[in-house]
Amino acid sequence: MALNTPQITPTKKITVRAIGEELPRGDYQRCPQCDMLFSLPEINSHQSAYCPRCQAKIRDGRDWSLTRLAAMAFTMLLLMPFAWGEPLLHIWLLGIRIDANVMQGIWQMTKQGDAITGSMVFFCVIGAPLILVTSIAYLWFGNRLGMNLRPVLLMLERLKEWVMLDIYLVGIGVASIKVQDYAHIQAGVGLFSFVALVILTTVTLSHLNVEELWERFYPQRPATRRDEKLRVCLGCHFTGYPDQRGRCPRCHIPLRLRRRHSLQKCWAALLASIVLLLPANLLPISIIYLNGGRQEDTILSGIMSLASSNIAVAGIVFIASILVPFTKVIVMFTLLLSIHFKCQQGLRTRILLLRMVTWIGRWSMLDLFVISLTMSLINRDQILAFTMGPAAFYFGAAVILTILAVEWLDSRLLWDAHESGNARFDD
C-alpha cells in the first residue's frame, strides 16, 4: 500500500549564491595573561575582544583620537594649579581661619623630617597626573615632529594605576569627618577644581587605549598563520617573532617567553612588605597634641575612634588600611606557593584573586592621604596640633611594595603550573 505524501511548494523562490571570495581570516594573537594562541577576527570600533580561555580583555573598544586626548590633557593642565594650590577646605580653629590644600599637606610631611613619605604622596597625587598630561601632550606634538614615541607609550600603561586623584578625593571626605570634632569646616574653591580634575582624569584614563596608539604610530604586520613560536610582548602586546637582537619589532624591548626574574622580584617585594606591615600596624601612625597632652593612634585605634562619629567612614578606612593590605599579602603568598608547588586545582579562583588584588591594591594609600591633609588643617603649635607617627613611612612603603609585587608577577606562570593543553579552566 503506497502512502500519498503531499508536496510542499515554497511560496518564495530560494536563491543560492556561491561564495565568490575567501572568507576573511583572523590574525593570530597570544593572550598576555595566559599565553593562549588564538585567531582574533577583525574588530570594529566600539567592540571589545576577550581571550577565549581566561576571559582577559585583549582589545578595548573604547578609543579616543589623539586630538581629543590632547584637549583633555590641556584642560587638566589648566585645572591643576587651582586643584593643588587653592584651598580645598576652610576650618575655623580657636577663632582663626585655616586653609588646607594639597601642596601644603605634602610640605608639612616633608617639613617634619619625613621627606620619603611626603614624596610618596607627591608622586601619586601630583607627579603621576602631571606625567600623564605631559605624556599625552608629548605624543600629540611628537607625532607631528617625527619624534620617538616608544618610551612614552611604554610608560603610559604602567602609569595608570599610580594616578590616585580619586583616592585622594575620598581622603578629603575622611579628613573632614575627623577634623569636624575640633573645628567648623567649609569647602574651599580649590575643592571644585579638584573634583573637576578627578572627573576629567577618570574619563581620560578610561578612554586612553595605549594598544590602539601603538597600532597608529607603529603598525606591524600581524601573524596570519598559526605558529607556536609566536611570542607576545608584555610592553606593547604585539604578537610576532623577535628581531635579530631578540627584541620586539614594535617597542624594541627584549621579547622573552616569560617575564625575567618574575618570581624572585615578586618574592622579594612580598617578604619586604610583610616585614614592614608589622611596625606599620604596631607603631603610632598619627599623633595629636591637645592642650599640651599627647595622644597617639595606631591604624586600628584611629579607626575605632573614627567609628564613634561615623561608622560608615570608619568601615571604608578599615577596608583600605587593614583589610586590603593583608588580603593582598595572603593572596600573593598563596599564588606564589601554588606556582612553586605546581598546583593544578582552583586555577579559576587564583586568576580571579590576582585580578582582584590588581584592582584594589592602590586604595591602601588612602590613610597616607588623610594624614597629609589633616596635617595641613590642624597645626596650632602646642594648643592643638596633628602630626604623623613613625608607622606612616612603614605603611606607605608596604603598600608600594605590594603594588610592585602584583605588577611583577607574570600571570602566565600560573598556567605553566597548571596542566598543559587546557582550553578551559575551572575549579
Rank of each mutant, 00 (worst) to 15 (best):
G190R: 02
L283W: 03
L37Y: 07
M164K: 01
T117N: 04
R362P: 05
N4T: 07
I400K: 03
H184W: 13
A269G: 12
Y182H: 07
I400D: 06
L277K: 10
S262T: 14
D27K: 11
K328T: 00
Q244V: 09
I316Y: 02
Q108C: 15
L323T: 09
E22H: 11
T9D: 09
I126M: 04
A392R: 00
R59F: 05
D410F: 00
Q7H: 08
P129F: 04
R380H: 03
K342S: 12
F141E: 01
V329G: 09
G292D: 01
F141Y: 01
I199N: 08
N209D: 10
R355N: 13
F425S: 14
M1L: 02
I403M: 13
Q345I: 14
K229N: 13
T110V: 08
A49L: 07
A2H: 10
T204S: 14
L3Q: 08
L352S: 12
F333V: 12
P81T: 07
W214S: 15
R150D: 04
I378C: 01
L234D: 14
A268I: 04
C124D: 09
I287N: 08
D416M: 09
H261A: 12
W214D: 01
Q264H: 04
I351W: 15
T5Q: 05
T327I: 10
V203T: 14
L88E: 02
I98G: 02
L276Q: 11
D63G: 13
I8Y: 05
D367S: 00
L77N: 07
R231Q: 11
L208Q: 14
L337M: 10
Y168F: 14
T15Y: 06
R53F: 08
A223G: 14
R350T: 09
A128W: 01
L230S: 14
N44L: 06
L255R: 05
G85E: 09
R144L: 15
A2L: 04
L404V: 12
T15S: 07
S176Q: 08
R144P: 01
R250M: 13
F341Q: 10
Q186P: 02
W107E: 15
I351N: 11
P151Y: 03
S411F: 06
V370P: 01
L278T: 11
V357Q: 06
I339F: 10
F192N: 05
L94G: 01
V170R: 01
D381W: 06
F425T: 13
P151V: 05
N101R: 01
H252T: 07
N44P: 02
L205W: 15
M76F: 05
G315T: 15
L401D: 09
G105R: 00
Y289A: 02
L40T: 07
S119L: 01
Y289C: 03
G142D: 01
P254C: 04
P24R: 06
T67F: 13
L130H: 10
Q180C: 15
R348N: 12
D60T: 08
E211H: 13
N4W: 04
D297A: 08
L409E: 01
S176I: 09
G389M: 01
G293F: 09
S135M: 02
G20N: 06
V152P: 05
E211W: 11
Y394M: 02
L337P: 05
R250K: 11
V16G: 07
Q344E: 09
T204I: 05
K160V: 10
S39Q: 05
Q295V: 10
L77I: 07
E22Y: 08
N143I: 15
H184T: 03
I58A: 08
S376C: 04
F341A: 11
R258Y: 08
W363D: 02
R17W: 06
S273P: 05
V399G: 12
R260L: 06
P41L: 06
A83V: 04
A115M: 02
L270P: 02
V179T: 13
E215F: 11
D297V: 05
